[in-house]
Design a protein around this nucleic acid. Structure first.
Lengths: 110, 110
DNA sequence: CTCGAATATATCGATAATCGAGAGGTAACC
DNA sequence: GGTTACCTCTCGATTATCGATATATTCGAG
């Protein structure tokens, strides 16, 4: 599974996680799989980045965590997005679009 | 002049600089102005990030530096992209597009 | 003539996010 | 019994960005 190694992921992992949880509450491992499958491995949420990120988001009140049983019977920590997390998702999505627009302007300049 | 503060710039400054220098050789301060004007201040190349970045790119052989007179009569260091810098620009542009595509897939997932 | 704004380069330390490499453990399957 | 898939979590190293700061020159306004 290819890693980022470009540094581009920097600052967008939170957005990825918030967006993923806005679709459905799920546990960390499921987030990893979801992102890898959606992007054909272009983006990955590695444990070493994901769990700190989840802790960060929780600390900011944008997600909640609760232990549950996964469909496979094992215990897993389910993360759900909060109302303020949804607002944050909106903000970060806008920022991302602004960023991409600006980059496109630079990349197309003559 | 608004700063990034999202972390999104992380990893794309090199691309911005290479692309800018591919248009025309110029000095650091001119890069700062060029990027700010093109993007309406959405992206900035602050001195504290720019000069280390230029040094980094030079170390990799992607740009060259040479002292010259600026149109205003002051001495300035002019940076020019090299052939291998152009190749690197191509690679980084592709990576960026791949990244944006992947992000879009995540942001549009249902 | 003086003063501030614009031009221009550069360094330093703090910050913070990512990543690699694990460690630990359960369940299922061959 | 061994391997794979599932699932959480921590630690240290790395690295880029950023804010602040220093230095110096040129130009135009008052």
């Amino acid at each position: 599974m290819p890693r980022d190694k470009t540094g581009l992921l920097h600052g967008s992992l939170d957005l990825i996680v918030l967006r993923t949880l806005s679709v459905q509450a799920m546990h960390g491992y499921a987030i990893t799989q979801h992102v890898a499958r959606l992007t054909d491995g272009v983006l990955t949420a590695d444990p070493g980045s994901l769990y700190p990120a989840l802790e960060r988001l929780k600390r900011n009140g944008w997600i909640t965590a609760k232990w549950q049983q996964s469909p496979t019977g094992r215990r897993a920590r389910y993360y759900a997005i909060t109302r303020s997390g949804l607002k944050q998702l909106g903000r970060e999505t806008n920022e991302f679009e602004r960023f991409v627009d600006a980059m496109r302007r630079v990349l197309r300049a003559t």
